[in-house]
Design a binder for these strands. Sequence first.
DNA 1: AAAACATATTGACATTCTTCTATACGTTGC
DNA 2: GCAACGTATAGAAGAATGTCAATATGTTTT
Lengths: 93, 93
Amino acid sequence: MLDEKKTAIIFKAFCDENRIRILKMLATGEKCGCKLLEEINVAQPTLSHHMKILCDSGVVLGRKEGKWTHYSISPEGVRIAIECLQNLTIISS
Amino acid sequence: MLDEKKTAIIFKAFCDENRIRILKMLATGEKCGCKLLEEINVAQPTLSHHMKILCDSGVVLGRKEGKWTHYSISPEGVRIAIECLQNLTIISS
DNA sequence: AAAACATATTGACATTCTTCTATACGTTGC
DNA sequence: GCAACGTATAGAAGAATGTCAATATGTTTT
């Protein structure tokens, strides 16, 4: 089981409204930063900040390609997050 | 699918280290506030504050009985949280 | 090499969150 | 009724977070 600190870092991804919007966009497939920026109402440095938190959580992957960064949901990160949520909440002895 | 605000409220439950400790305690069964207070290193009003956030998320249930409040994991709340996490992160078109 | 573009970093400010002390509220037992 | 107990609320202080403008970094194109 992950420690409290790492667990908190994972779920920080899901506790800001703008990050949730970003995740919903990524759920339809990989997108580059500039595309995300078009669809969300924040300044570019703010988006960059949120993308860092999402990547740090492990739930999102960033793939650099030339001047673009393509972001996508990480299936492995998602698996870990769900497992973590279950460990925290499923009653056990 | 839940809106961004409600989703954020659910996952706020999991993004503070002390709340994660509390959830781990509750995963071993229902506990009253005073029992939780013994095991966690915060003042009583701070615990009360965290319990409110946990209950607001729907992941924890509070059951009043005389002067005690007994807290437990809500299986239904957990189900919704996991479903919500899956909706946000499982790739779809 | 210079211009244009995508993204990251810095620094400042406002808001939100965590925590505490003090106090209030509701219940139990004398 | 009053004291003791468990919990909640109010208010304040400090820390963390979200946001932006300005600027830096790295890449592509001309």
